[in-house]
Design a protein around this nucleic acid. Structure first.
Lengths: 140, 140
DNA sequence: ATTTAGATTGTAATGATTACATTTTTATTA
DNA sequence: TAATAAAAATGTAATCATTACAATCTAAAT
């Protein structure tokens, strides 16, 4: 999910040195408007109706390009499948072990105190919590 | 990697309600002494010499049991394969995008400021950074 | 209009993980 | 101790996400 609104996705992609093909625009748009953190399969299924020639390989290629250009984050919450997030700002993910739902939360990662040497160049910071979400803990 | 030394792994497993079979003891011991965060395949290959009848299914079963009993953490750093860590204390992982090596670092996760409601029950906290490690950035 | 690079597609292969049934080991009871 | 039951380990086969690669299509450039 992206808080900042991008009015013209084509121009945004261009500004990141990405040629704005139709598929790329629609994939980024879908990811931007997703509250969940969709998998490749979910993105593919959501767009195949509108783009009948879309192939899963294109979704993979496009997402890998977006990651390389740093406009999308890979979220390895699940064991088996990778999820994607168009919100590249610092924030955390909470996964409920019961219902499997993933919640976003704000975290002040910049102020996190670590013993990591200055000579490590950090490109991405992820915070990931697991546990039981309020609605599932109520049921027990 | 586990900082705290466990002198008798069998007793330790028993204390966690895990029957200490030979395979389970050896798998936990291997994980405890690993500086890296081995994959299922790495654990299997490391032990097959010593335990020729060991099956990969057993490694999977055992690790899933350890996770359930909270004595091992799943580390989803890689895209494709899950890694495991016998250090369940709060700490972070840094993965170098160039050489792929994973570094542990200390992080004061408890003091991390988040907007997550109190009604979320947190069982596991993970911090994961990506970037370039000192030895790889020197080379460029 | 032609050429060329880039983007998309489909097929097939790879490789991690799980399902499930069978066998082996360990614990329990008579 | 022997018999029985429960738990653990094993092997095979299946599933499914991901990638490799070659072919086709599209769009930009000359």
């Amino acid at each position: 999910m992206k808080e900042m609104k991008i009015d013209n996705i084509g121009d945004f992609l261009k500004s990141k040195n990405i040629k704005p093909s139709f598929q790329r625009i629609r994939i980024f748009e879908y990811l931007m408007n997703s509250i969940e953190h969709p998998t490749v399969d979910e993105i593919y299924k959501a767009l195949i109706g509108e783009i009948p020639t879309l192939s899963k390989t294109t979704v993979y290629n496009t997402l890998n390009l977006f990651i390389e250009k740093r406009i999308v984050h890979m979220v390895t919450i699940e064991e088996n499948e990778v999820r994607y997030d168009a919100d590249v700002s610092d924030h955390g993910h909470f996964k409920c072990d019961i219902c499997g739902k993933v919640y976003d939360f704000k975290a002040n990662i910049i102020e996190l105190d670590t013993d990591l040497s200055e000579s490590f160049i950090i490109n991405q910071k992820d915070i990931f919590f697991r546990g039981t979400c309020p609605s599932c803990s109520k049921k027990n």
